[in-house]
Design a protein around this nucleic acid. Sequence first.
DNA 1: AAAATGTGTTAACCTTGACTTAACATTGGG
DNA 2: CCCAATGTTAAGTCAAGGTTAACACATTTT
Lengths: 226, 226
Amino acid sequence: MDVNDFKVLLVDDETDVLDFMKYNLEKEGFWVYTASNGIEAIQMAKKMNPHLIILDLMMPKMDGIETCRELRNLPEFKNTIITFLTARDEDYSQIAGFEVGADDYITKPIKPRVFISRIKALLRRLETNETAGKLVVGNIEIDRERYLVIKDGNEISLPRKEFELLNLLISKPGRVFKREEILSKVWGNDTIVGDRTIDVHIRKLREKIGDDYFKTIKGIGYKFDA
Amino acid sequence: MDVNDFKVLLVDDETDVLDFMKYNLEKEGFWVYTASNGIEAIQMAKKMNPHLIILDLMMPKMDGIETCRELRNLPEFKNTIITFLTARDEDYSQIAGFEVGADDYITKPIKPRVFISRIKALLRRLETNETAGKLVVGNIEIDRERYLVIKDGNEISLPRKEFELLNLLISKPGRVFKREEILSKVWGNDTIVGDRTIDVHIRKLREKIGDDYFKTIKGIGYKFDA
DNA sequence: AAAATGTGTTAACCTTGACTTAACATTGGG
DNA sequence: CCCAATGTTAAGTCAAGGTTAACACATTTT
């Protein structure tokens, strides 16, 4: 599944925040729908069947927690990823949120780049049936929460792009990812980068993780293999 | 399936919008047909059998929703992808649209890059159902996802052209593919290559997969046989 | 705030092997 | 037996990818 197939429902009563998130997500190619309160959110969710719902905690009429509870009661949203939007250090939410069945929470203020990669990480869960933040393939372990790669017990820390690239390739070991696909998933749809950019990142991964894990399929793309 | 094989039907009463979309899609290699109202759209759709129909919501005579309903009633358009074109935040459409069987909707104003990548995403749905997955013929298995050929459990990796050639021949075991046909499907219609090129690739396949799988029909072409 | 560091991208150049070609050998239907 | 079609081989070309360093930014440290 491609970024372009993902439908995201944003729920927030502040139009500014809504627009800001919408802009950033659309730039990446997500299908974005919005609602400004809990009631609307549930109606909209029924119509569009989103893959991911981002719920603001503080809303009039029905707050995020209540909305989440309602959604989780509907069978069609049992597997939808729901995440909360909260002000930083709003401790209450972190506790109550997960009890209601939320998958994650994002803190305001939102930083576009972090926001986007968080969303991508969340949606990757749909593709790889992995639930926790950790993924083990062969002697390599990926800790998505801490942005760490552990190989034979040694922690290797990777910059964001390298991490996301590795993360993408490793999400389906053996499967070939076309260059075009890599670009749209790691870089986003409207970013125009030079031809050598992917190669350079692959090179860095080969340098840090090991040469033979990354196989080139000339004319097509790359794959991860143990 | 290639982008160049996709047929798109655009339906909008505003000539400007029509031209704009047409220009952008044609630039990408799509076959584009147009209609300026619902009646025309249905007539045209019957003639050209499009893969994707983009319907403007607001049109004279018959609006997008009504047109969509009519189309869905015709058996030949049960699997055609239909998407609406709406002004941003036209709430009505979002609700009524999906009920009628539309697959998605695109908001105006249209941004070329976003527009194109969404169209591609939509069409990818058609593609993945056909091309993805594994194909087993006799003791040979083709894994398109991993770009691998497996014979008696041994993985054989083939260069791109060889892989595509094998892929074509094996897609209909026993059937003879004319040289001309092979050229147009593996090499493309506009590439001009010498006489011996196909033979050389066949030879490489015989070398790697086994001599007797590939039979020559002199004066005609080749076939794959187990 | 300035300096130091880290990250992402680009541009220039290098390397490789996939693909093609050309020259010659072989084959099989007429 | 003939010869046009195909097989075979090796060598050449070219485009895809590899490599490196420099740059522009962003981030963190001092």
